[in-house]
Design a protein around this nucleic acid. Structure first.
Length: 427
RNA sequence: GGGGGGGUUCCAGAGCGGUCAAAUGGGACGGACUGUAAAUCCGUUACUUCGGUUUCGAAGGUUCGAAUCCUUCCCCCCCCA
């Protein structure tokens, strides 16, 4: 398998430094991608980078996953219009270990020579003093060079300015590359296209400091066809951690991609072959309403990110919530089967006592649950026809609910809009 | 240290004594149409027991009445040294 070719046909390649492809085709090469520990989980936006490393390893090269315990302390100004808040050391440590655990799922760390390796740049920065750094690293690059970078220039032109800390970021990341190049024979750095500037600082540093050569390659930033940001839903980022984004929601996120996006994303986010994908596309075009591509995409990623079992549950839940005649289906299940099917959607407990006297819908949606943040909002949404209980639209915000509204004597299914469900359990 | 500009509802950005819960745009959410798609159209976008109640960097003050005027403080940007 030819790594660069692979990225090309998948439409992932954005920019590549001259000589990189030749170098990679010569021999097994080590390459790395850095991940910033800005949160305690990776999100779907990181998946492109993860896929890049997977392809890298499948092509017989040795992938390094770098977690930025040190760079995370500085803050990457790339793509940021304002200075960022620094994270505390505790948070950072916690995040680093979370990310490491997630990355372990995707790469093979035990397959001989090209086993993946996990590194944390805090390890080589913790004992690097400020003075040593500015003498050994800072001296090799001019401020002029650093200021020409997009990430810096934009901030200098803008209104917010930029701290020295963030200005230095590229040096810190640049040194990572130098260190890995020198100590681990890591010759290639990869990353999203927004990282080009930072990566080049690294190759430049290697060249000036040691006269060595290193290579770089960046991947396309994922964009949606309609121009909106990839990876966001109404409830925020789509995380890989099932505690932050349930497998059901995760599956739904991918299922809901548009036809256009599905075509490019199935190439980027799955390992399916070109042939396989083209076949799926033909199928999809014949009967677009079946959403063959979206389903294949969603299933593939869900299994690899979570598990076969998680996918099954997600499918079951989706089937139930979006299928037809589903209330009957629910009646046949016992309580644990219901809870299992609803695992991925928000649940609330209410007491039978309250239901005995009847609960007004708006209270139910705001005080007893967090479906809506305020009664006013709940009322407006109900009036707009956006709320259903047990699959039936409710138009009177004053309606009360009692014991006999419960399905199976214990459940109430609240629906906000078309796709947001909540399960209320009475006990 | 000197001079200038500025902090408004999710964001951008109007308002510059009452008609302001605050224009406009974006975003977000909801509805219709569909395929749980895209495009399009429509609606909502501080809280409320619908009487009112709390909002315009913070605290005071002037006024019948302030986002709008005054005082102090905090923060941001630009220019000069």
């Amino acid at each position: 398998m030819d790594f660069v070719k692979e990225l090309r046909w998948r439409g992932m390649l954005h920019d590549i430094m001259p000589g990189t492809e030749e170098e990679l085709n010569k021999k097994m090469t080590s390459g790395y991608i850095g991940f910033d520990p800005t949160a305690d989980s990776l999100h779907v936006g990181h998946l492109t980078q993860i896929m890049t490393l997977i392809h890298f390893q499948r092509a017989g090269h040795k992938p390094f996953a770098l977690v930025g315990g040190a760079t995370g302390m500085v803050g990457d100004p790339s793509g940021k219009s304002a200075e960022r808040n620094l994270l505390s050391e505790d948070t950072l440590n916690h995040n680093v270990s979370c990310l490491e655990n997630q990355l372990k799922k995707f790469l093979d760390f035990d397959c001989g020579a090209n086993s993946a390796v996990m590194v944390n740049n805090f390890d080589w920065f913790k004992n690097f003093s400020f003075l040593d750094f500015i003498r050994d690293v800072g001296k090799h690059l001019t401020v002029n060079y650093m200021m020409a970078k997009d990430s810096v220039r934009k901030r200098l032109e803008g209104e917010t300015g930029m701290s020295f800390t963030e200005f230095s970021y590229q040096l810190v990341q640049g040194y990572d590359f130098y260190y890995l190049w020198k100590e681990k024979n890591c010759q290639v750095q990869m990353g999203g296209s927004d990282q080009w500037g930072n990566i080049v600082t690294g190759t430049e540093l290697i060249r000036r400091k040691s006269g060595g050569s290193a290579f770089a390659l960046t991947t396309q930033l994922i964009k949606k066809e309609d121009g909106t940001k990839f990876g966001k839903t109404e409830s925020g980022a789509v995380w890989l951690d099932p505690k932050k984004t349930s497998a059901y929601k995760f599956y739904q996120f991918w299922l809901n991609t548009s036809d256009e996006d599905a075509k490019s994303w199935i190439r980027i986010f799955t390992l399916k072959s070109q042939q396989e994908i083209e076949l799926l596309e033909v199928e999809h075009n014949q009967e677009p309403h079946l959403r063959t591509l979206q389903k294949a995409l969603a299933e593939d990623i869900t299994v690899r990110t979570h598990s076969e079992k998680a996918l099954e549950t997600a499918l079951k839940t989706s089937d139930f919530l979006f299928g037809n005649g589903s209330l009957e289906f629910l009646l046949e299940l016992n309580q644990s089967a219901v809870l299992d099917a609803f695992e991925g959607i928000p649940q609330f407990k209410i007491s039978n006592k309250q239901l005995l006297s009847g609960i007004i819908l708006t209270d139910l949606l705001t005080e007893l649950t967090t479906v809506f943040p305020s009664k006013g909002e709940a009322r407006k949404m109900i009036q707009g026809g956006g709320v259903s209980v047990n699959k039936e639209k409710v138009l009177d915000s004053g309606q009360t609910f009692k014991l006999d509204n419960l399905i199976n004597g214990q459940f109430l299914i609240i629906q906000k809009g078309k796709k947001n469900f909540y399960l209320l359990i009475a006990e």
